[in-house]
Each structure stands twice: as C-alpha cells, then as structure tokens.
Amino acid sequence: MPVANMLIERRTFAKERGTDLIQSDEESPALTQEFMVANRMGIHARVAAQIVKVASRFNAEVCIAKSDVAANAKSILDVMSLFCPYGSKVFVSARGPDATEALSALAALFQTKFGEP
C-alpha cells in the first residue's frame, strides 16, 4: 500500500481514538520507514514497553502503523493494541525537530529484534 494512502486511513482511525496523527506539512515532513517484526514472540507487552521508552525520549511525534491501523508510539496501550506477531510488517513514522534521530533509534530496536531471539 502506498504510504500516502496509509496515512489517510491512519488519520481516520486515529481521529476516532482521539490520537493525533502525523501529517507531512511544508515545515516538517514526516519520515516513514518500513520494518518487519523479527523476534519470535512479536510485539508483546515487554517489547511494547521498550518501544514506548525509546519513542518518549524524543520530542518528535512518533507513530507505528500496521495495515490500516496506527498507534501513538508513546502510548503503551496504543502500541499493544496493534497486535504485531512475528513477521508483521509495520511502518514507523516520525515528525518534528528530532524526527531523524527518533526514527533511527527505533530502527535500531527493530533491527536488533528488541534484544530477543
């Protein structure tokens, strides 16, 4: 699915839940990267906690999306509600002054499989 479409659908969803979504605007474009959940247990509660901890270190808005559902990466409930078992494909996007740093910090988490087998 093209990222643009994804963002639109995500917005619909996020509105319902009262979560702010990330929109590219001229001042600060949103950066998006795709990842696969590679640890065997998937994004379970403890992994979700790691994601939230890392995302919360940055000022940027950070959001994780799976198919047409998006989650605020700074809310553990949101992240856990995505339900990403092993092999899920997710999009992480960030927008704000430190968006690049936020995205690379999260990329490191996904790439090291959250320190899990």
Binding site: R46, A49, K74, S75, L77
Partner: peptide, 12 residues
Amino acid sequence: EVQQMILRDPSI
C-alpha cells in the same frame, strides 16, 4: 514495568 507504563499512559 508495563503496568507502571499503563498507569502513565495518556489514554488512562
């Protein structure tokens, strides 16, 4: 720790 984070989660 997860429970502690849930406590501070914006949705709660």
